[in-house]
Design a protein around this nucleic acid. Structure first.
Length: 421
RNA sequence: GUGGUUGUAGCUCAGCUGGUUAGAGCGCCUGGUUGUGGCCCAGGAGGCCGCGGGUUCGAGUCCCGUCAUCCACCCCA
């Protein structure tokens, strides 16, 4: 239909009907995360491109084809953040967090990926995320997952499943990659197009292929868990035990590998039924990230939730109406002007009021007042202006009285009433 | 990037195998009481039928292209 007023593809406008739900979700996140000692961090939407290249990984889908990257006027390559973790780690590195120091932060805001939009997938989408940075411990992983599940329970997102897996440490990963490569070397020619692409770009992803032809070959592949060193296996066992001890149900999914290179050890995903093809509502894991210019890799564990998907998996929306105490009706320009002043006084005293700004009939204005479902209508025309009064009409019981227009306290006292008398 | 879907009023959508001035519901505006809401009634405004081309005496309807949308693949939040 219209075209010039539409937002850029994959981006959307949010109106009060929607934002009320966003706000309550965000508030729950703030409340719960702070119970776990997390504080909010806000980082720029734009970063130097290498912040993402190095941490997320050159060969990942995100870096290969999904980033919004451009050169600024100084010729620097900048990128709109495709996820939150890299930015957070960059910020912490910049602030000079010392080795061994730990920090818990959460963030919320827009992320950008240049994918083809579909159900539950936008190019600008929004995440709420949390990172526990600085320590390596399976218990931190457990707490992180527990906090995530606590939040989901609180906001009423149900029908979810928790999937966990381990990718091992950096040495395990090299060993696994070598083993996988060696195995698939002999079979790749007979596998599907996607797999031969993955073989080159994202080897582990082959394990995820659903095509029948490949399944048989994949079934014979060396399993990730078997390739883990004893230390990594013990780590993973501690995580699983910890989840069980907290009474949290989970499923070990040996094929869960996730698409970002920085993950090590624990990875997890929360899926929800009824979301369509994009059923992951949250995901995360333990990672180790070396920022450009930094001496050491910084470990951490964290997750990100997709706000749009949370809302799809949760409650339905209702029509938005501003919640105001009174509607100021004015017949004639003089009354309309006087009403704007009266509205200002009432608001200053803490009331929420809506004042008519159009010079139209009383009937039309009362209709509007009715639509907003206010308890009171304050009515003034030339007569009231002359006599210095305002008609106070109780919309619930259709009673009406007269109050001096200068007696703001009396008006406030009435508005503070629930309108049932 | 690949496949498919849809595009008609502000919104949700009808419009049969091409045929006169393109419709409904909701919303909006005005009136039914010179200044008293909801319900009801009457009336009204509002459409390059996504855009461009083609076939035809004639296209909202058929064909081609294009743009947008949604869904799926890929991958993930």
């Amino acid at each position: 239909m219209s075209k010039k007023t539409e937002p850029v593809p994959g981006m959307s406008d949010l109106f009060p009907t929607e934002t009320v739900r966003w706000q309550s979700l965000e508030q729950s996140a703030r409340d719960i995360f702070s119970q776990y000692g997390y504080g909010e961090i806000r980082t720029p939407l734009l970063e130097r491109t290498d912040v993402f290249l190095r941490s997320i990984g050159q060969e990942t889908d995100i870096v290969q084809k999904e980033m919004y990257t451009f050169n600024d006027r100084g010729g620097r390559s900048l990128t709109l953040r495709p996820e939150g973790t890299a930015s957070v780690l960059r910020a912490l590195a910049n602030a000079g967090i010392s080795q061994g120091e730990s920090l818990r932060v959460y963030y919320m805001g827009p992320m950008f990926r240049g994918e083809r939009p579909a159900a539950g997938r936008k190019r600008q989408f929004h995440q709420i995320g949390a990172e526990n940075v600085g320590r390596v411990s399976p218990h931190a992983d457990v707490e992180c997952i527990a906090m995530l599940l606590h939040f989901l329970r609180e906001i009423g997102v149900c029908d979810t499943a928790l999937l966990v897996n381990s990718r091992g440490d950096r040495y395990d990963r090299d060993a696994i990659s070598t083993a996988l490569k060696a195995y698939f070397d002999g079979h790749i020619a007979r596998m599907c197009e996607d797999c031969s692409r993955r073989y080159r770009t994202n080897l582990w992803r082959i394990l995820d292929c659903k095509s029948d032809a490949c399944s048989e070959i994949i079934a014979g592949a060396p399993s990730i868990v078997d390739q883990l060193g004893t230390g990594s296996q013990a780590y993973f066992r501690t995580v699983c035990d910890g989840l069980s001890r907290l009474g949290l149900d989970y499923v070990v999914d040996p094929r869960l590998v996730r698409g970002l290179d920085y993950y090590a050890h624990t990875v997890f995903e929360i899926t929800s039924t009824g979301l369509g093809a994009q059923n992951a509502v949250a995901g995360g894991g333990r990672y180790e990230i070396t920022m450009p210019g930094a001496k050491h890799a910084v470990p951490g564990v964290g997750f990100a939730l997709g706000i749009e998907r949370l809302l799809m998996a949760g409650a339905s929306s209702q029509a938005f109406l501003p919640d105001v105490d009174a509607y100021l009706i004015g017949i004639g320009d003089e009354a309309l002007t006087a009403n704007l002043a009266l509205a200002a006084s009432l608001r200053e005293a803490g009331a929420s009021v809506l004042a008519e700004t159009e010079n139209r009939g009383l009937k039309a204005q009362l209709r509007a007042a009715n639509k907003y479902d206010v308890r009171y209508a304050l009515i003034r025309g030339d007569d009231e202006i002359d006599r210095g009064v305002v008609q106070v009409k109780n919309m619930k019981i259709a009673a009406q009285s007269e109050v001096s227009a200068t007696d703001v306290d009396a008006l406030l006292a009435i508005l503070a009433d629930d309108g049932r008398r």
